[in-house]
Every structure is written in structure tokens, then in C-alpha cells.
């Protein structure tokens, strides 16, 4: 498939960038010109070739650099990866899901060979060659969840299911949109979503929980979430808010195109076979405004969405203070023409 991996940073000099091909396959989350919370879940079935939906776990040009950034975050703060003691089996389930998916979908990059419980995993891009015994933690350098999520883009949480609720009880969270695993671990579904405005009143979380409790193994689902991030910083953690917070005050009409990023989360949910837990990968995609507006439909639409978003949502997502500057910039790319339905770019 000829994937070349960028050498780039998500901190310091921020050399992160999207190639023209990466821009075109960016998961633009708005299928219409306005936005409000909804459950918006659909089956996570393989999508068109080349899109981020083509495979169960998308591997793209940012893979190696994202994994380097994750290792840096974990070295600074090991609390970003935690698993309560009863969640180890779910960690093995997740390891199996990711290894099998990647070996199937990217045979030139990953291989998995099984002989009973003796497994052999090859991750060619990361130059990892690991033999281990499935379900035996002593044969891996980390617990199973940490081991595999140090090799997989996006954050991951594992939810135990009991008492008709989901409990967030394990996770690898280094590319988060301003929430703390360390604080939220152990909470029930409505508790960890408690700070989200409006959605509770709309019944979004009641419906989502009811739906997820019935999630079936082999029938994963997906949805989008999104926010805005100044500079391509994957680690917008509450822990480091005093470090990155000041950048929100640095946006000007002159730099908004090159420093403001649309941050999209492709969230998928997978029932795990042994533990009956739910794996929740939260894959973060970043795109600079000046990259995004190279797709005319997206420039038009993003302008309208941001302009018309309810103030509570813009405040919760942290960009109300920069909204006017963002809208002024995006307005230059909105000629008022109607946009076509769906999020895909128009054919060139």
C-alpha cells in the first residue's frame, strides 16, 4: 500500500503536517451545515478503500510519530495508563482484537502467528518482534493493554459492564480532548460524562447507554466527536492545562489558519469476547485550518457550523474566546454556495 511515515512532532517545534492524500481522507465530521449533540452511532463496517473507515483500526502516515509522542507522555506521567486489577482479561481481549485486525488489514506491516497460546507478533514499522504466551502477563514487557496500545494510534478505554451500567476501569489516554483518566477511572457512564453540557437534558446519554449495553461481539459501532486545538498538540490533558492553556490566548487573524486545528475523534466501540467488556478506541485526527480549506466544501461548511454553534458548546469545547477570529478566517472560504449532503469532499 506504499504507506510512508512522517517524521514529525506534536510538541515543541510542532512539525506535524498532513500530506495532500491525508487531507483528502481526513474524517470531516459534519454531514450538514449545523451541529448538535446526538447519539449518531452507525455500524463500524469497512468503508471505501483509502478512507479512514477502510479498516478496523486505521494506520496512517502519522503512526510512528504518534507512538513516539505517546512514549514521551507516559515517561512524564505514568498515570495516563491505568487498569484496575479486574480489567486484565479485557486487556488481553483488546490485544487480540488489535493484533488480529492489523495483521489481517496490513499484512505488509504486521504479522501474527499463533501456535495454541504461543503467539508471535511482528510490528515491522516499530521494529518489534515479540514471542509471548497469550493470557500470561509475565511474558510481555507491559500489561496486555499497555503493551498493545503503545503500538496503536488513538486513546483506548475499557468499560466493564455490570448492574446495567458501564464502568470506565482501564485506559491508555495520552491524546485526549481535555479529560483525565486518572480522575474518571472507576466512574459509571453518566458520571464520567457528567460535565458535558446539554446532552444529558437531550437524553443522549440515556439512549447511548441503553444501546451500548446491548452491543454484540463482532458488530462494532462508530461515531464522531470533535473540538478545536491550538497547534497540533495531541496531549491536551487537563493535567498539562497550565502548559498549553496560554496558546489559546495567542490566536490572531494572522496565525489562525496555521495554528488552529480541527480535532476529530473517530470513536469506535467493540464488545470483547472473554471479559464482556467494551473497548472504546478514541482515534484523534488533526487538521490545520489552512489544510482543511483546501477542500472547498469543508471550508464552506465549517464556517457555517462554527458561526452557528450554541455558545455552551463552544465554551465547553474551549474555543468561544477565539470563535470570532475563526469565523472571520473561515468566512473567506464560504461563498454562500449550497453544500452537498454527507461529509465526503466533492469530486474534483
Amino acid at each position: 500500500m506504499g504507506l510512508t511515515f512522517n517524521t514529525e512532532t506534536f510538541r515543541g517545534d510542532f512539525t506535524f503536517h498532513n500530506s495532500p492524500a491525508a487531507i483528502r481522507r481526513f474524517p470531516f465530521p459534519f454531514d450538514r451545515d449545523d451541529y448538535m449533540y446526538s447519539v449518531n452511532m452507525e455500524p463500524h463496517v469497512p468503508g471505501p478503500k483509502g478512507t479512514v473507515f477502510e479498516h478496523n483500526f486505521d494506520v496512517d502516515e502519522h503512526y510512528l510519530s504518534e507512538m513516539r509522542d505517546r512514549a514521551l507522555v507516559l515517561a512524564e506521567d505514568p498515570l495516563r495508563c491505568q487498569s484496575l486489577p479486574h480489567m486484565t482479561l479485557a486487556g488481553w481481549d483488546l490485544l487480540e482484537l488489535i493484533m488480529e485486525s492489523k495483521a489481517r488489514d496490513y499484512p505488509d506491516l504486521f504479522e501474527l502467528h499463533k501456535n495454541g497460546n504461543r503467539w508471535h507478533w511482528i510490528n515491522r514499522p516499530m521494529q518489534i518482534d515479540q514471542s509471548f504466551t497469550f493470557l500470561d502477563e509475565t511474558t510481555l514487557p507491559y500489561g496486555p493493554m499497555e503493551y498493545i496500545t503503545r503500538q496503536a494510534q488513538g486513546d483506548f478505554t475499557l468499560q466493564d459492564q455490570r448492574d446495567d451500567n458501564l464502568w470506565i476501569e482501564a485506559g491508555m489516554v495520552t491524546t485526549q480532548a481535555d479529560w483525565s483518566l486518572d480522575f474518571d477511572i472507576g466512574m459509571g457512564f453518566h458520571e464520567w460524562h457528567a460535565p458535558v453540557p446539554k446532552a444529558h437534558e437531550l437524553g443522549v446519554f440515556d439512549r447511548a447507554l441503553k444501546f451500548l449495553l446491548k452491543l454484540q461481539h463482532g458488530a462494532p459501532v462508530r461515531r464522531f466527536n470533535w473540538t478545536m486545538t491550538v497547534d497540533p498538540l495531541l496531549d491536551t490533558s487537563p493535567e498539562n492545562y497550565p502548559v498549553w492553556g496560554p496558546t489559546r490566548a495567542m490566536i490572531t487573524p494572522g496565525n489562525v489558519g496555521s495554528r488552529m486545528h480541527l480535532r476529530v475523534e473517530l470513536q469506535t466501540l467493540h464488545r470483547l469476547p472473554r471479559s464482556n467488556a467494551i473497548a472504546f478506541p478514541i482515534r484523534c485526527y488533526l487538521i490545520r485550518f489552512d489544510e482543511l480549506v483546501t477542500i472547498p466544501k469543508w471550508g464552506r461548511r465549517l464556517h457555517r457550523v462554527i458561526r452557528d454553534l450554541p455558545v455552551e458548546l463552544a465554551t465547553y469545547k474551549g474555543f468561544e474566546r477565539n470563535r470570532a477570529t475563526m469565523v472571520d478566517y473561515l468566512a473567506r472560504f464560504d461563498d454562500g454556495a449550497p453544500t452537498s449532503p454527507g461529509w465526503m469532499p466533492d469530486p474534483e
Partner: peptide, 11 residues
Amino acid sequence: FQGVNIDAEDP
């Protein structure tokens, strides 16, 4: 409860 820096964006 959770405490968050109030002047992170405007030290």
C-alpha cells in the same frame, strides 16, 4: 472534587 487551574489561559 476536581480542581482546575483558573488562570491557565491568562496567567
